[in-house]
Computed example of a mutant assay.
Amino acid sequence: MGRKRFGVLMCAEDSEHVIKIYGGYFRVFMKMLEEENETWDMYKVSCGEFPKDDDLCLYDGFVISGSCSDAYGNDKWICDLVTLIKKLDSMHTKILGICFGHQVLGRALGGKVAPSPSGWDIGVRSITLSSHVSFPSLNLPTKLSIIECHRDEIQELPKKAEVIAWSDKTGIEMFKYGHHIMGIQGHPEYSRDILLNLIDRLIQRNFIMEAFAIGAREKAVVLQPDTNVWKRLCINFLKNGF
């Protein structure tokens, strides 16, 4: 067996805090996903850095990260990412989308992404898994807690896609498309520390009000995300499948 190869399509710039504490978001993803006998590459797609078409067949799968940008936007790099997703879909390459990645997958495959009518979701939230999720080796519970930080959401699924998790805030917390694409609206890779720092940055940029941030911080402190279960679920999908 040769080394498996994966790529992270990075859609956001590293914050100073994440660089200092974790070595950057790429290292955050590596901590969650990397195993022995694998090669992982990073492409800063938000800066226009994409894998070459001729190299796509070398990869066993890709992860699309979160972003401060809107998945329904028409920046050149977002449109180029949509084009890349369509190519990877035609090749049946595994793709795992996280937050913005989840949303841009929905857009590329024919769904609709828009701001949530109920606004931001920031903190730790319990989501309900569909009984149709088939990871028999994982023995998943019916509910999982995950860190959330998003204002947009998938409002209409692509044809042939299936909702596999939802919450009382967001109707499409997870979806699958065929056996090779899965989107997760929350952040399985985040730690509580990353979330709290992100809340502070959102306040500084006037994206959220201090009163809202107080509630988000309280949820982050009181509730615990199911980090280890998410790690196993994401690894199982990328390397084994549904």
Rank of each mutant, 00 (worst) to 15 (best):
M1T: 05
R3A: 14
R5T: 13
F6V: 03
F6H: 03
G7A: 10
L9W: 10
M10K: 09
M10L: 14
M10A: 10
E13V: 11
D14E: 12
E16T: 12
H17C: 06
I19Q: 11
I19A: 07
I19T: 11
G24T: 07
F29I: 08
F29K: 15
E34T: 09
E38M: 00
E38N: 03
D41T: 06
Y43N: 12
V45E: 07
S46G: 06
S46A: 15
C47N: 09
G48Y: 15
E49L: 06
F50C: 12
D53W: 08
D54L: 10
D55H: 12
L56D: 09
Y59R: 15
D60A: 05
G61D: 03
V63I: 12
S65Q: 03
G66L: 03
G66W: 03
S69W: 12
D70Y: 06
A71K: 01
I78K: 14
D80S: 13
V82C: 07
V82Y: 01
I85W: 01
K86V: 02
L88R: 07
T93Y: 00
I95P: 00
G97Y: 01
I98T: 09
Q103H: 15
V104P: 11
G106L: 06
A108C: 08
G110C: 06
G110P: 10
V113S: 04
P115G: 15
S116D: 06
D121T: 10
S126C: 10
S131M: 04
H132F: 10
P136L: 02
L138Y: 11
P141Q: 02
K143R: 05
I146R: 00
I147T: 01
H150Y: 06
Q155E: 14
V163L: 10
A165E: 04
A165T: 09
W166P: 00
D168H: 08
K169C: 08
T170P: 04
G171S: 14
Y190G: 07
L198M: 06
L198K: 03
D200K: 14
L202W: 05
L202H: 08
L202A: 00
I203Y: 01
I214G: 11
E218M: 15
V221I: 14
V222I: 11
D226R: 02
D226C: 01
N228K: 14
V229R: 04
R232H: 07
L233D: 07
N236H: 08
F237Q: 13
